[in-house]
């Protein structure tokens, strides 16, 4: 087996905010009926977090669950355990109309932290990034300049950004340009 590497292999950029490649993150796409008790129990067992309401992310010590659409969740689990978790989920969801797939290596994941983080995102996404509008625990799928992306804000004030791996270099360069030290707008 070749060694797994994250999309930007640990690249960082420091400017108005700090942009870093998050490293390897286990991710499972789960589609199914989110109201089903069987599915909710399986999600809780796999991640330690409850199924969140629309537009939210539920975080636990070992991972989390993000609400992607009315029938889709993104489960965050440790990278090394992802295959085991997928088998556990598939086992638990037997007979349900549901599907769990390991998408860890199909994504790029970034951390965006620091004072200018809201402004850096606000420049490239059509989303109100003010502190009153976008609160910790909120999750948003949106457009980041020319590509689709999703992000959430954790309770330590760090944004976590997920995009397709094929556009990870684009997203990293985009966020770095948006965080250029001389590009301060001072909106948020």
């Amino acid at each position: 087996m070749s060694d797994p590497v994250s999309a930007m292999s640990g690249a960082t950029f420091a400017g108005l905010a700090k942009v870093e490649d998050s490293g390897l993150q286990g991710m499972i796409t789960l589609r199914g009926d989110l109201a089903s008790a069987v599915l909710q129990a399986a999600v809780k067992a796999a991640t330690g977090a409850e199924v969140p309401v629309s537009g939210q992310v539920a975080l636990s010590d070992q991972g989390g669950v993000a609400w992607m659409s009315p029938d889709e969740l993104l489960l965050l689990v440790p990278y090394a355990e992802v295959d085991a978790k997928v088998s556990e989920l598939s086992e638990a969801l037997k007979g349900e109309h549901a599907l769990a797939v390991n998408v860890s290596d199909a994504r790029g994941v970034f951390r965006l932290s620091g004072e200018g983080a809201r402004e850096v995102l606000g420049k490239v996404c059509p989303v109100d990034m003010s502190a009153e509008a976008f609160k910790p625990g909120q999750f948003r799928r949106t457009r980041m300049a020319q590509v689709a992306a999703a992000f959430w804000l954790d309770h330590d004030g760090v944004f976590h950004i997920v995009c397709f791996r094929s556009v990870a270099a684009y997203v990293f360069n985009l966020l770095s340009a948006s965080a250029h030290p001389q590009s301060k707008v001072v909106v948020y």
Binding site: S54, G55, S69, P70, P126, R140, R141, T142, R143
Partner: peptide, 11 residues
Amino acid sequence: PYCGVKAEETE
């Protein structure tokens, strides 16, 4: 109406 997001045209 599905996710409740006020989406701007480009989204």
